[in-house]
Nucleic acid binder design. Structure first.
Lengths: 186, 186
DNA sequence: CGACTCATGTAACTTGTTACATGATTTG
DNA sequence: CAAATCATGTAACAAGTTACATGAGTCG
């Protein structure tokens, strides 16, 4: 549902092949959505069935043919309708909290390891995205709308990572304290 | 995969029917995971096929029979194995960021409305979860392990909601600024 | 007397993952 | 000479949603 609209948004900016779109999920789109190439191809077929996109085959010598997709007027309408419709919170599914619950019946030691790994990984990602943000701010000397929107997307990721790191630190400290009580009692 | 282990964790604490477990997703489990009753029943069948749980039918007069599930030793092993295994970051999928991208080709006005709604909803949830946290802290006069773990789960939700609210505020302010530039130019 | 709770499920569908397949061209 | 890039897909599976079905008991 949402992936379909992400694809329509990409096609609103310029025509593209399934391959091009799939690649974008490793770049800019990857800030907020992920999808494998298989899924992209499947969704493009569905979008075509719904008359929201058309395509033309572009033959290539020495390379596979490309199917270049374009958005239709119906596609543009569908995109606008989705854009204006209220957004509901998606279901929470958090594996680390699920594992935290296991600390009630097992030693919390593995959980402390998970928290260390979470800090390390999230800090690595945070550095990366803050690097992109820094870069974005520098490039945006004028008032480029696209750059400013890109920055807001980066802000989302950054704020989320900071919250994850803070949580991991809190949990690690608290679990250490919990274990020290057990050791003191024994 | 994860739902299966959440169910095993519940059954580690006490035996329960599918109905009981499904109901827990509206209570404590709902802090970090969601699942419909249909899905819970289906997963219980799979867990039974894998010999990770057993069940006994408890007949009831005037009420439907209950299938009461218990975890097996194999189930306990499987749970411990999952608990100790490193956790990978789950794929990012954020509908609001996806809609933000549409602001590049449409008026940002609907997005500002989405941000207002997001603030309102997240603030409502934040109040609710902070109420639970307050309650938890008050009850935890001793050093109850379960209560302290519950509090950590609440911290996850709270930190995440605070990040969401901060982002929504930043986006709303920035989009207003973006629009004022357009109006000033015209 | 209508709605909610208790308690189980089936079935169709959607969304996403993983493994496999093909085959030419470019790069280290 | 192996690996990556370009470019398309099929097929099986896993996970989650939505709609439907049944039927007694309780509460306002």
């Amino acid at each position: 549902m949402i992936l379909r609209h992400v694809i329509l948004t990409v096609l609103s900016e310029s025509d593209a092949s399934g391959y091009d779109i799939a690649k974008e999920f490793s770049n800019g789109l990857g800030y907020f959505w992920s999808a494998s190439h298989q899924l992209v191809y499947r969704e493009l077929i569905k979008l075509h069935d719904m008359n929201l996109v058309t395509f033309e085959v572009e033959p290539h010598k020495h390379k596979p043919d490309r199917k270049v997709y374009s958005i239709t007027d119906m596609g543009r309408e569908a995109l606008l309708e989705w854009f204006q419709k209220p957004t509901s919170h998606s279901a929470i599914r958090d594996e680390l909290s699920a594992k935290l619950m296991v600390c009630d019946i097992h030693s919390s030691e593995p959980m402390q390891q998970h928290m260390k790994a979470e800090c390390k990984e999230s800090n690595g990602l945070l550095d990366f995205y803050q690097g992109l943000e820094h870069n974005n701010v520098i490039r945006n000397l004028g008032f480029d709308r696209q750059l400013r929107l890109e920055r807001l997307m980066l802000r989302r990721v950054i704020l989320n990572l900071q919250a994850r790191i803070k949580w991991a630190e809190e949990v690690e400290a608290e679990l250490k304290d919990l274990d020290s009580l057990i050791n003191a009692a024994s």
